[in-house]
Design a protein around this nucleic acid. Sequence first.
DNA 1: ACGGGTTAAACGTGATCACATTTTACGGGA
DNA 2: TCCCGTAAAATGTGATCACGTTTAACCCGT
Lengths: 237, 237
Amino acid sequence: MAPTPPLSLPVSPRHPKETVNQWAYRSLRQAVMVGLIPPGRSLTIRDVAAALAVSTMPVREALRRLASEQALEVQDNRRIQVPQMTVAKFRELCELRIALECHAAERALPYVTPARIDQLTQIDRRIDEAQAAGDREGVTIHNQDFHRHLYEANPHQVIMPLVESVWLQLGPFTRLALSKLNDFYHVDRHSEALAALKKHDLLALRIALEADIRDGITHVGTAELLSAYVENAGMVG
Amino acid sequence: MAPTPPLSLPVSPRHPKETVNQWAYRSLRQAVMVGLIPPGRSLTIRDVAAALAVSTMPVREALRRLASEQALEVQDNRRIQVPQMTVAKFRELCELRIALECHAAERALPYVTPARIDQLTQIDRRIDEAQAAGDREGVTIHNQDFHRHLYEANPHQVIMPLVESVWLQLGPFTRLALSKLNDFYHVDRHSEALAALKKHDLLALRIALEADIRDGITHVGTAELLSAYVENAGMVG
DNA sequence: ACGGGTTAAACGTGATCACATTTTACGGGA
DNA sequence: TCCCGTAAAATGTGATCACGTTTAACCCGT
């Protein structure tokens, strides 16, 4: 077996006023979210620090934070890796996402203003543009923006951090769903959600959201695709 | 106004094989959970490190982790404190807890065995004993054990970390609910839940759980108690 | 050629130090 | 007496180092 490659991370430019810690966290998070780090690949603090050209300290804090958000997994208190995915776990995460986000939408609905609906419509347009351009990462980002912007209509925000954690756990594997999704015609669930928002129709909103999430995700669980990827990833470590 | 007291933390004994980091995290978490650190009280890394008689490094990692779990709040990138509670936020957390835990129970139900029901019954007995002994902290701990042990029947666990985060955010304020609760006769929702488990009756389980959570929590939200505490705590900082 | 034991490299952890930024305290001017 | 500006103390951040443990490599014996 070939020795593990030296771990190259895409270094996004560091924002001004951003601490090294935040930058390392952001970089690693992004890498995990888009599936750049294969599950089972063991990360060492020193390696990541070298890849980012910083000292070990900010890196280990970033790694630990991601671990506490379930994005990474500390194996036996030694190795750190992206958790392995199983079909059952994937299903659990999918159902959790639906329950959590439907609840978030319900709690946000009373605070949704016409102005926010306009903003959501704009974001939805950006999703379509990215989809048309074949920009999968853009689709993911804008799709998350759409959901986030809906739930954050609620000014007493407590749910989003949990939602983000679930997104992070599903992240490495949703990229697959999107690639599959492009092949099919796919009804625009966001339009349905927007219509429900305009009518303040909670039930219709829940239905649209659940369908949207299932569209983006469940195909993977039912298809042989995930299994293949899971097994493949399992061999990488 | 009196100068802020020098922050004394109850130092639980350090487990063998436990890193300083883990110990600091556990100590701080416990302190937050039982409401020992008043909301608004600003914590400094050096102070906590001094109180625990360790260096600053493990402490800042513990603090950051608690912040990422929403147990603490980094104010303007300088001050760290237990977040202030508002009535609206409290309600959001309560509703979130219900939604999350009912979902967790639903996903766990198919895996609940008679053996586990027995264990749950034993834990429930311990709750009653603590209640009879007036041991509020014991009640809290065993109550959490009960819920955790139910949800963890599901072997593909992804929900508990989120539940723990919500518990942690409610923790500093539930102690009030319990003190109030002792004054009233209070139907044993856990018995109802156990009965529902034995019948594999999902709906009854959800109803019992929701009632249990509301019993333990919502009284605070409706009573003037929380408001009083919130305002009081707001003046502490 | 294969396996086990020894040794060296690698790693996580935690302490200490230096530096930049922020907060606090003090004192002078209106 | 009340601001406000300046200086000193305090704080977070990040780098470096030392130590104990774990992992990996290597060599010798069979």
